[in-house]
Design a protein around this nucleic acid. Structure first.
Lengths: 163, 163
DNA sequence: AGGATATACTTGAGCAGGCAAAGAATGGTA
DNA sequence: TACCATTCTTTGCCTGCTCAAGTATATCCT
């Protein structure tokens, strides 16, 4: 790191307008997602994460870390997804403390359905302002602010708990 | 569900990490601001905006637009700042519908106090993670998300309403 | 073994902010 | 002048989340 200098002069202002821009963007995206599919941006994000996880399950703690919610936040969010039938609870045979979140078929279908319009929204609202390389760059830089972590997998697999 | 069209393959992921990055960043900043000064990031933003406005007052509507809150959001936010003594209501002699938000001396002092640590936080969070060129890049890209709007000023000035 | 400590998750209370509807003032327009 | 549409703001109700506690389970240390 070169000169241990203060932030550039307009930093406060730049940050402020960034904040505004972001608020507008994510609010719009969220609103559309809710209106068209009844999913929150975070709901969507969680579904996406689960769909990509091996075997479609993730520890609730890890999930929380990945979407940057507190444990209680995840509990409530998953509560919603569960009662909608998009995810189920799974238990780990080797550690009774952990509860997994497992995507259901219905959940995957919902995700696919939502993805279609969400990608379009994303393109319209966000991507029009940046080209591909800028987008990648932005993602990389901002991604650096949120530490990435791997989720551990349960040796015995997650067993869906049939209520 | 991969290739729909247009959007680059990793766009969804990129957007996701952008989201996370932003969440991490603003959450951290907000937490510090609250812990050290009892101000929300939005509180701070509003105070900053007011401090920069000519004569330190702004229509509530304009304020809402600038920080991207809904009118009701602004009402409640200002409610908090008012009861803390940082802003006052002002009425416009030519239009009885509008209420201005006016920073008080106390509010300005508070802003100055908060700015000190806020800038430091901003610096710490950015500078420790990015080198100078990345920082410049980031500022440029983020700045592009902004849309600026002007606020109108009251011809007669804002009269503070003394309760 | 048996307690201390740590980890995984849930629950209750509370807060910020959104949406929709209501209240209050203004500016046409006839 | 009376009326209607618009604009500015507030209020009620609701959601999404956080924080602080509380409950299990697991692990470590003597």
């Amino acid at each position: 790191m070169t000169s241990r200098q203060a932030l550039p002069a307009g930093a406060l202002t730049a940050w402020a307008s960034y904040l505004r821009g972001h608020a507008a963007l994510s609010r719009a995206l969220n609103a559309r997602l809710v209106a068209e599919h009844g999913l929150t941006l975070n709901d969507y994000e969680v579904l996406l994460l689960l769909s990509r996880a091996p075997d479609g399950y993730l520890k609730r703690v890890d999930l929380a870390q990945r979407v940057l919610l507190t444990p209680s936040g995840i509990t409530r969010l998953l509560g919603g997804l569960e009662s909608a039938g998009y995810v189920e609870k799974g238990s780990c045979p080797t550690d009774a403390r952990v509860t997994y979140a497992v995507v259901t078929e219905v959940g995957l279908a919902k995700l696919a359905e939502a993805t279609e319009t969400h990608l379009a929204d994303l393109e319209e609202l966000f991507v029009t302002r940046f080209d591909e390389s800028e987008l990648a760059l932005l993602a990389e830089l901002l991604g650096r602010l949120a530490g990435d972590s791997e989720g551990e997998h349960c040796p015995g697999g997650a067993r869906a708990r049939n209520t």
